[in-house]
């Protein structure tokens, strides 16, 4: 069970308080109707799935309730950093 630093609570808390929420920095278009089918497909379904550094979202669901972003190494399962939603990609 890993420890995750919640950037809102500013505490390391146990993994069971958190929920994973998929790849980070995939923004919903302001007007989806302007997206062609392929563009929309990419937005909906295509994910990076890298080996190594992965930008992903977590939610401190049994804590402060906030979604936030994290950089985690998918090989070592170690968190490099976590940061608040809306902050630029790290």
């Amino acid at each position: 069970m890993i420890l995750i630093h919640c950037p809102y609570c500013d505490e390391k808390r146990a993994e069971i308080e958190f929920a994973y929420a998929g790849e980070a920095h995939i923004s919903r278009p302001v007007d989806p109707s302007t997206y062609g089918d392929e563009e929309w497909e990419r937005y909906l379904f295509i994910r990076a799935n890298p080996k190594g550094r992965h930008h992903e979202r977590w939610r401190h669901i049994h804590g402060c309730g906030r979604f936030f972003n994290a950089v985690r190494d998918t090989v070592t399962d170690k968190f490099e950093t976590t940061y608040k939603a809306g902050e630029p990609r790290k």
Binding site: S27, R59, A85
Partner: peptide, 13 residues
């Protein structure tokens, strides 16, 4: 609730 929070917090803050 989780889905709505997701949109609210991250798409339309």
């Amino acid at each position: 609730l989780n889905m709505m929070e997701d949109y609210l917090q991250t798409e339309w803050p």
